[in-house]
Amino acid sequence: MLILLWFLWDASSAYWYDFGISQLWASEWYPYESLYGLLPAIIGTAWAMIIAMLIAVPCGLAAAIVSSEILPVSWQGWLRLGMEMLAGIPSVVYGLIGLWVLLPWLQNTLDLLTGHNLLAAGMILSLMILPTMMVMSQDALRLIPIEQREAAMNMGMNWNQRLMRILLPQAWPGIRSGILLGLGRALGETMAVMLVVGSLDRVPDPIYNILEPAQTLTSRIGREMGEAAFGSMHFSALMACGLVLAVTAICLSLLAQRKPREFAS
């Protein structure tokens, strides 16, 4: 891990020395004019992650609750198998599904200039992290001892109360790890996002406009790395994109590791 970070830092140091940290909020990316602002791609990445989480967290959690609390045991295995298979599909396949199904649909239903946009990227990502979310939450729910459920029932709690007061609080650490792992995957996903996001290096206007083409850090690296000569400033700037991604991912996984205090006791 340290070696990786060191490598990214080493490869991108020329960029940081020449342009400094202020490039994180500079909004112009024109490699041929030596302008390397990271802001458009950072905002794009953030939006794609937020949209993906807004869809995947509720859906994944609901699926986990239904499968572990409501469905009979024999069905659970099948559902889980399905989810695990979903997690194993290569990302380019998701990208192509997005390209052929999601984009035309978005374009027609929302009457957009093009279906390539951040919403599409977020939706594809949500599909990809849904299995992680669901499997982790399901495991967490399953770990809750049967005695607790019985006790809750004996106390006369209805289903809603049992879910909100007993099950979800107990399963929260597991659900939380699921969310953070999902975020990590959404952050690093390249291929599927690259195919649907539109790759336009411009800050969305207005900033909450998720229906126009935009750029993410991963998609920029994917599209431009082949061309950037090794050792050039362009290469260094792309490595800086990688460093930003890596640091964010490390923060996320550190957060996932840390146990919240209330559950440690």
Binding site: Q107, L113, H116, S199, L200, P213
Partner: peptide, 21 residues
């Protein structure tokens, strides 16, 4: 004025053929 960036000829061809504008 660019509204979207494409890569290969196939990609460009696909975007044009899918759009009306």
């Amino acid at each position: 004025g660019a509204s979207i960036i494409s890569g290969s000829n196939n990609e460009e061809q696909m975007i044009v053929s899918r759009s009306d504008n």
